[in-house]
């Protein structure tokens, strides 16, 4: 992994069209980051992205009988 030091207000360029700017460092340790990227580049918080990957994998494993599911709704 490439590690660089930046101060608030300073940026990084990734390629020629993605700019990541350190906006603010709060006293609780939170770093606010600004991202300028083309619309087709999707930006997610990593833990949320991983949670959705996980959830989709779980959903794909299901061996489900929709009939029994339907019974629940018929009550």
């Amino acid at each position: 992994m490439l590690v660089l030091s930046r101060k608030p207000g300073q940026s990084l360029m990734i390629g020629d069209n993605i700019r990541i700017t350190i906006m603010e460092i709060r006293s609780d340790g939170t770093v606010r980051v600004g991202i300028d990227a083309p619309k087709e580049i999707e930006v997610y918080r990593e833990e949320i992205y991983l949670a959705i990957q996980e959830e989709n994998k779980l959903a794909a494993q299901g061996m489900v009988d929709l009939k029994s599911l339907g019974e629940l709704f018929r009550k």
């Binding site: 949320i48 949670a51 959705i52 959830e55 989709n56 779980l58 959903a59 299901g62 489900v64 029994s68 599911l69 629940l72």
Partner: peptide, 17 residues
């Protein structure tokens, strides 16, 4: 997208995605 576990009464839907 729905996850259906063994106990189908505990099925969940992903409203975040």
């Amino acid at each position: 997208i729905v996850v259906v576990p063994q106990d189908i009464t505990k099925m969940t839907a992903n409203l975040l995605a």
